[in-house]
Design a binder for these strands. Structure first.
Lengths: 196, 196
DNA sequence: CCTACCGATCGGTAGG
DNA sequence: CCTACCGATCGGTAGG
């Protein structure tokens, strides 16, 4: 019965979600069909529904997995003894590495979360808002203690979070510059511009 | 016969494309249906096809209108007498203002251009690549003449182009900060970090 | 896990 | 510009 390929101890559901993540990233959530997904996994479309409840459930798994990863890292960094600049740099580096290590997941969550339906849509929307507020808070503390240039904190958050998406173009074009070097360049440009 | 609302001397096709631009931005190109569009315009779905040839033709108009705007501005700036930093700042400001003044258009082109089919897909892809190379060229000249910090030029382009997309979140949340002030903050953070 | 199938909706056309 | 409609495809279910 176990026709779904089952490498590295993954459950069938995990295999489906993994394949879907890649498919959603490549074609977009709406344009990727369950029949495409079934083919990628190696079963008939109807068989997918023995492991998942709906197409949207897959999107939910992807979006909240990403949201949880960022929230947990933010917990750690806020509890750390790093300076304000150090905390910001640490979060920036985490975002960059998430783009490298979990590219498909991060891109799908960022681009397709609007296709969630309530209550997941509101929940995700609110988490996103709260997360940005936390990051702005870290920056504001840096401004208060003189580490960071006095600029609008929410604007810095906007710039940082979106700048990291540039890695998509890099990922796609396979430029000559290496991942490690790209990370250092991004940190250099974005963090150095913040110092007061 | 002219049932399509025709404010400010727009042709029917222009009215359709304008409504479609908003709809595509709100729901995504794939998720927005021609029946939705027909309703927004105030006609039956079949009637749209007297003015346009296909759903994709609308997407083509949107994408290449945006691409042309950026290319033309780049022509002007490259031909100007501005310093290298001045040229980069000028292009950055143009991107920011395009986000403010033509938000739907810019977002759709950026998010949905992959749904074009060949030869438009390859054409757009190539224009995008060439445009980024031109921007990187401006920055590289700035590095050569000592105006700009010595960092990887393509990385700076990636950061600048994507950072500007942060205006989407601002647009959506209607934060307290004004458009003009957001522009100055972005320029301050992104351009000041470049100076050598 | 598959065969067989459903109702809904899609982009688009014929003909007036 | 509309009515009427097409074939294709969608997400998902029944039943085994």
């Amino acid at each position: 019965m176990a026709k779904i390929k089952n490498k590295h101890n993954a459950t069938k559901k995990e295999v489906i979600v993994e394949a879907a993540t890649r498919l959603f990233r490549e074609r977009g959530f709406k344009a990727a069909s369950m029949r495409d997904l079934a083919e990628a996994v190696g079963v008939e479309a109807a068989s997918l529904y023995n492991h998942i409840q709906s197409k949207e459930e897959i999107l939910q798994e992807i979006c909240f997995k990403v949201a949880n990863a960022f929230n947990e890292q933010c917990d750690k960094v806020e509890a750390s003894e790093l300076s304000s600049i150090g905390k910001i740099e640490s979060m920036l580096r985490f975002h960059i590495r998430m783009m490298f290590d979990h590219f498909d997941m991060v891109m799908v969550a960022d681009r397709d979360w609007k296709h969630l339906s309530d209550p997941f849509l509101s929940n995700y929307h609110e988490q996103r808002r709260a997360y940005r507020k936390r990051l702005a808070g870290i920056i504001e503390r840096g401004i208060d203690n003189g580490e960071v240039k006095d600029v609008d904190a929410p604007t810095i958050v906007l710039i940082m979070l979106h700048a990291v998406n540039g890695i998509e173009s890099w990922h796609r074009s396979k430029e000559k510059i290496g991942a490690r070097q790209l990370e250092e360049n991004m940190v250099l440009i974005l963090i150095d511009g913040l110092r007061s």
